[in-house]
């Protein structure tokens, strides 16, 4: 309808700058990573690299300290914990706030969203302080009820759970934000109709509200899932994968292999694996989302 200044080429001229930046600094690095994952590149030797086929992947799989199985397991537990924790807290809070008046809601929302804007690494320091055996709030609170001080981040059984709690704190905000936005768009009349029909609030939530926000809920779930998978800053700030690799996730592993071990090829191999999983999830989401929205329109 609108005539552009340069006819058909106008949109592409407008898109040139963003697309160029996205290509150079988002897409191209990934393409390079796919290439490097099949080479013997090291930090000191990035050019004239030797083609090694899938050897890097074999090396990654057969690594024993930490074993790749353990890395995958830690990643899975950490991600699952983050996912369910943030979804439950974020959605629960959004539903609770949905029932209060708009003024109170936006004031509370502003406070709840504070962690969302804080740097992950600062969140890591904050929770590391909370968990500090000597001056941490966690042990102070436990002490008040007579439970003895715990070594939150250095005890093997506890560290991962402690990280999950910190990451839920970091991640529930985006779920709350997205789900609140969706709830605000649920037509009030279908909720009122549910009440007129005599349904309990719990029933209205389950049968009316949650189905109505399903596409957005899936989006929030995906965002939480992918960010859980890729959490680096927070773990790095809190445990650096310790104690004894008990919190070493794939995101830390690719940093360790690249920057600490200097093996760019192996780091690239882990990145390719993580990238592929993340991209598969993103594509799966887009497919599910389009099917859902079609169902509703």
């Amino acid at each position: 309808m609108v005539r552009g200044a340069f006819g058909r080429a106008t949109p592409w001229l407008l898109l040139a700058l963003p697309l160029l930046l996205l290509f150079l600094f988002l897409l191209l690095p990934y393409l390079l990573t796919f290439f490097y994952s099949t080479t013997g590149a090291t930090i000191g030797r990035l050019f004239n690299v030797k083609e090694v086929g899938l050897k890097n992947f074999q090396a990654v799989f057969s690594e024993d300290a930490p074993s790749f199985i353990s890395v995958v397991a830690v990643t899975a537990i950490f991600t699952a914990g983050t996912l369910f924790g943030s979804l439950a807290l974020g959605t629960g809070l959004a539903l609770a706030l949905h029932t209060v008046s708009a003024g109170v809601r936006s004031a509370l929302l502003a406070i709840y969203l504070i962690p969302w804007v804080i740097a992950a690494v600062i969140i890591g320091y904050t929770w590391r302080l909370i968990y500090d055996p000597a001056i941490g709030l966690a042990n102070s609170v436990l002490g008040m009820v007579g439970i003895g001080p715990l070594d939150w981040l250095t005890e093997q059984g506890i560290a991962l759970a402690a990280l999950v709690v910190a990451n839920v704190w970091a991640g529930y905000g985006i779920v709350l934000l997205v789900v609140s936005g969706a709830l605000a768009n649920v037509p009030p009349n279908i909720i009122l109709a549910g009440q007129v029909d005599g349904a309990s609030y719990a029933r209205i939530v389950r049968r009316v509200i949650l189905p109505a926000i399903r596409p957005t809920f899936l989006l929030a779930a995906l965002v939480a899932l992918v960010s859980g998978l890729n959490t680096f800053d927070l773990i790095y700030a809190m445990t650096r994968g310790g104690p004894l690799y008990h919190t070493e996730t794939m995101a830390l592993e690719m940093y360790r292999l690249t920057a600490l071990k200097g093996n760019v090829g192996q780091g690239a191999a882990v990145t390719v694996i993580l990238f592929t999983i993340s991209l598969a999830l993103a594509v799966a989401y887009v497919i599910i989302w389009r099917r859902e929205t079609r169902k509703w329109s």
Binding site: L22, L26, L27, N230, T258, A259, V264, A268, L279, A282
Partner: peptide, 17 residues
């Protein structure tokens, strides 16, 4: 889809680039 890829998965690629 690209916007779903968080910065951690970009460290190695960007280091290489």
């Amino acid at each position: 889809a690209l916007s779903f890829l968080p910065s951690a998965s970009r460290i190695v690629p960007l280091f290489i680039l």
